[in-house]
Design a protein around this nucleic acid. Structure first.
Lengths: 337, 337
DNA sequence: AAAACCTACGCAAACGTTTAAGCTAATAAG
DNA sequence: CTTATTAGCTTAAACGTTTGCGTAGGTTTT
């Protein structure tokens, strides 16, 4: 590997001069600069990120921490979308991204924070983990700039999908279509889940609709089978709901399966409403009626804010940024009026 | 950040001793070692990957290069699965992964190879890119250990999905179910596409079936709309096929839509066969009949072989490893006999 | 013509490691 | 009792950068 030293000796200047020339410092003569740069190009010089980072204390490398319950990792559509746009945005600013390994079973593994320190990440984005995990909390509380997705900590910038708007929008839409018997299979307990559930109840109340207890069920996120079974229970109810809300689109597909297997039709007999707006759903008939979270927006906002936090720590505030999604009208909601 | 130096002065030993103690060298006394290690723990010492890499010329960091035509990035199910298992496997061996940025439009960007050199990746995995892109070729030809997915270069270890087996299996299965009029909408030209197409024709020939030219159509990978339109054309043929093969599962869904919109039924009127085995397809009815590529196997093999290449260069051969998938029977193929 | 000021470069230290080689004192061998 | 051996530690150089400070020579100001 060719280093500054090689260029220096070839140009008969000092290493310092070469460094300054390549970094375009003002105290190097124009023709010297040109000569050094030409030589650098000729020799195929590539700077060494490690050496650079030792001096500058900046790696231009960001850590990504992610893990969901189902351990779906990168196959989690929503997270993949967020990460993809995050990646694009940070790359524009010259940053790379590296995963913080989350294999908790590996012998000799280090904590998330230790890993982040080892790699000297300039910042970290955290999504979809167990936010109350002590290791996650430790990382969040450290001096490393952090942006979280969909979870609020004190003193940490958070990018939130607008779950309130989402649930309100869906409820309003469903009610506007004449539904009154609306069930909700919500996800496992988390701040997001609570927000949605509270909003669900509140918004229906606004419309003067009360929800019987047995209409509210719980099933993990992205668990088609769980949703399938809960749906069967709901369908067996004497007062069968006309519409069922699901925690996410995957679950909704599980629910649709249950409906069909009962010999019923979506949406003629039962309407189905998802949450997420996974990409593939647009390509499948019937199209799911759902609330599309703006994953791209979340990723981009996360990137911008994290970089601000890193590069302009003095002037950057800790913020909570809410990103609206939008209703995706599909074919799984029946018009009752 | 606490460094070896801090530990050294606290323990009244030299920095060298600390380094050796932490790396368990044999020429440090047992009690000294213990004392140093305890102090390191107390001070919260975390080694500096950059400094380490400068001395050892190893970063324990691997580059990931990926881009598909549709620019779906991480949202590409198949690649996400491959990458996920690759990631898990390399993390077990103490490696991290970092993306090689592929935004070709960014001003001041560097080539893939330059990026890889800048970060001093120990190795690189390449998937789904334009394999004849000069920048990719440059990277492959460099001295950096490389493993490619689904594309063969000379002198590069490749992990291949068994497209021959896949297509044979599908053809055999479809023919065994009594189909004789089988159309194939294949993907855009690539080595994978060619392999599948050749095998498709050959295997049908084996069964004594000839395929009319108009049954062979082209539509890009993962393009539901393209597949939709080609399917419409096929359905308008006087000799309408009884079964249509698609380049991938996404495309298959596009095809199914076309069938439905024509007022026909899958599989009663037209059978549909995909390729890939995307995860979500298992949750949606009707279940797609397809060939599930073993993405996990590909990722794991890629990881193992890349690490071998890095850690045991002398004794590791350049290989081409074929990973079989398996037939996924769904509900989209009609039994005609 | 002396004083002040640029311009363009070099010097050297520093970042945090690793490691070959050297040194000292204690122990084992002859 | 001398001499080789060994255990345990230190010294110092090196990896490839960046950057504050120094300085020599030239140019401008008084």
């Amino acid at each position: 590997m060719v280093s500054l030293k090689d260029i220096a000796s070839k140009c008969n200047v000092s290493v310092a001069t070469v460094s300054k020339a390549l970094n375009d410092h003002s105290d190097i003569g124009a023709e010297t600069k040109a000569r050094i740069r030409r030589t650098a190009r000729e020799l195929g010089y590539v700077p060494n990120a490690a050496a650079k980072s030792m001096k500058t204390n900046r790696t231009h490398n960001l850590g990504v921490l992610f893990m969901d319950d189902a351990n779906s990792g990168l196959q989690h559509d929503f997270f993949a979308s967020v990460l993809e746009s995050f990646k694009k945005e940070v790359e524009r600013e010259g940053y790379d991204i590296t995963f913080i390994s989350n294999d908790r079973t590996r012998p000799g593994r280090t904590s998330y924070l230790t890993h982040a320190r080892y790699r000297r990440f300039d910042g970290v984005i955290i999504a979809n983990v167990h936010f109350d995990d002590p290791e996650v909390v430790e990382l969040v509380k450290s001096d490393i700039p952090v942006v979280t997705i969909d979870h609020i900590y004190n003193d940490t910038t958070t990018i939130l999908s607008d779950n309130v708007d989402g649930m309100k929008t869906l409820v309003d839409f469903v009610v506007a279509n004449g539904h009154k018997d609306i069930a909700y299979i919500h996800g496992a307990d988390s701040s997001v889940t609570r927000t949605r559930l509270v909003t669900f109840n509140k918004q229906l109340e606004e419309h003067g609709i009360t929800v019987p207890d047995e209409y509210i069920q719980e099933s993990p996120y992205r668990d088609t089978h769980g949703a399938y079974e809960k749906t069967l229970e709901l369908l067996d109810l004497p007062n069968r709901p006309t519409c069922i809300f699901y925690p996410d689109d995957y679950a909704a597909y599980g629910g649709m399966r249950a409906v069909m297997e009962k010999g019923l039709k979506v949406p003629d007999d039962v309407s189905v409403v998802g949450f997420d707006g996974i990409k593939v759903a647009r390509h499948i008939r019937p199209r799911l009626t759902t609330y599309r979270q703006d994953a791209d927006g979340l990723g981009t906002q996360a990137a911008k804010n994290l970089i601000d936090l890193i590069e302009r720590p003095k002037t950057t505030l800790i913020k909570q940024i809410v990103v609206k999604g939008k209703l995706l009208e599909g074919d799984t909601l029946k018009k009752l009026n």
